[in-house]
C-alpha cells in the first residue's frame, strides 16, 4: 500500500470513498451543518436578490424592457463599447503587466519583494482612493496638465478627464494587479532549468523566451486575462468618477438609470444583459479562470 517509491496520491482520493464510515472525512451530517450558514447567507444576500432583479426585467411576463434595449442603438452601442473597453484594458494590462510578473518571478528575493510591494500596495488600496487619485491627476488644472504646461509641451490644459481614454488608463491601473499575480504564480512554478536547457541547446535568450517560457506561462496569461476582462465588464466606481457622458459603459448606464432616471425595470433589464454577458464569458473560460491564483501568491 505504501512503498517509499510510490507516486504520492492526492491527499483526498475522492473516488476511493467507502460505504462504511471513514474518519478521514467529516460525516455528511456534519458537512451539511458546516456549509448551512453560508448557504443561507448566499440565498438571502445573493441568489434571491439577483433572481428578483432578473424577474423584474421580465415584469408581467413581458419582454418590453429587453425590446427597448435592443431597439435603441444607443444602448447596444454602450454594450459594444463596454466590451471594447474591457478588451483594451485587458490587452494593456497584459502588455504592461507581463514584464513585471516576469521580473518578480526571476529576480533575486530582495528586489523581487520590492517589485511585489509595488503590485500589492495598489491592489490593497481602496478603488475609491485610486479613482480619486486619477481624478486629481487628470482634471483640467490637475497635475498632469500642470506638468505638461510647465514643461512647455502644451499651451492650454488638455481635456483628459471624463474621456474614454481616462477610463481606460484608470481601469488598467486598477486591474493590472489581477493580471500580474496569476502570471507571476505560473512563472514562479516554472523551474529555471527549462530556460537553461533551452539556452544550452542553442537557443538565444529571445528564442528561449519565445519558445519555452512564454508557452509555459500561458495558463497564467489566460487566467489573468479572463479575470481582468470579467472584472472590467462590470466595473462601476472608476468609470463613474473618471468617465463622462461620452464614455458611458454598461455599469455607468445602469447607475444612471437607477439614480437619475429611477427607471428600475429598465435598469433591471440592463443588469440582466450585463450579468448574462459576464456569465457566458465565465462559463466559456471556466477552465482557465482561477480566482485563487491571485490570492494564493499573497503568501
Amino acid at each position: 500500500m505504501s512503498g517509499p517509491c510510490e507516486v504520492p496520491q492526492p491527499a483526498f482520493p475522492r473516488q476511493r470513498r467507502s460505504t462504511a464510515a471513514s474518519a478521514r472525512f467529516y460525516s455528511r451530517g456534519v458537512s451539511v451543518c458546516l456549509a448551512a450558514p453560508l448557504v443561507v447567507a448566499l440565498a438571502i444576500g445573493f441568489v434571491y436578490p439577483v433572481t428578483r432583479l432578473v424577474g423584474l426585467s421580465f415584469e408581467g411576463g413581458s419582454l418590453e424592457q429587453h425590446r427597448r434595449l435592443v431597439a435603441e442603438p444607443l444602448y447596444l452601442g454602450v454594450l459594444a463599447s463596454t466590451v471594447k473597453v474591457a478588451f483594451i484594458v485587458t490587452i494593456a494590462s497584459l502588455l504592461l503587466g507581463f514584464p513585471v510578473a516576469y521580473l518578480m518571478a526571476r529576480l533575486r528575493h530582495g528586489i523581487a519583494m520590492v517589485v511585489a510591494a509595488c503590485v500589492f500596495i495598489p491592489l490593497w488600496t481602496s478603488v475609491l482612493v485610486r479613482s480619486y487619485a486619477w481624478v486629481v491627476l487628470l482634471q483640467r488644472n490637475g497635475i498632469v496638465n500642470t506638468l505638461l504646461a510647465d514643461a512647455g509641451i502644451t499651451d492650454g490644459p488638455l481635456k483628459l478627464i471624463y474621456t474614454q481614454g481616462a477610463v481606460i488608463v484608470a481601469m488598467t491601473h486598477v486591474l493590472m494587479p489581477f493580471m500580474i499575480l496569476p502570471i507571476y504564480s505560473t512563472l514562479q512554478t516554472l523551474p529555471p532549468d527549462y530556460n537553461r536547457a533551452a539556452r544550452n541547446l542553442g537557443a538565444g535568450a529571445f528564442r528561449a523566451f519565445i519558445s519555452v517560457t512564454l508557452p509555459l506561462s500561458l495558463p497564467g496569461v489566460f487566467a489573468g486575462s479572463v479575470l481582468c476582462f470579467v472584472l472590467a465588464l462590470g466595473f462601476y466606481i472608476t468609470p463613474a468618477l473618471v468617465g463622462g457622458p461620452g464614455s458611458m459603459l454598461m455599469a455607468t448606464l445602469i447607475g444612471q438609470q437607477t439614480t437619475v432616471l429611477l427607471d428600475w425595470p429598465f435598469a433591471a433589464a440592463l443588469s440582466t444583459v450585463l450579468l448574462t454577458v459576464t456569465l457566458i464569458f465565465v462559463f466559456l473560460f471556466r477552465k482557465t479562470l482561477s480566482l485563487s491564483k491571485g490570492l494564493h501568491s499573497v503568501h
Partner: peptide, 17 residues
C-alpha cells in the same frame, strides 16, 4: 459568485430587495 458577478448588478438587486 459574488467575486465574479458585477457589483453594480448585485448593488441594484440588493437595493430592490
Amino acid at each position: 459568485g459574488p467575486m465574479i458577478v458585477p457589483h453594480i448588478v448585485l448593488g441594484v438587486a440588493l437595493y430592490l430587495v
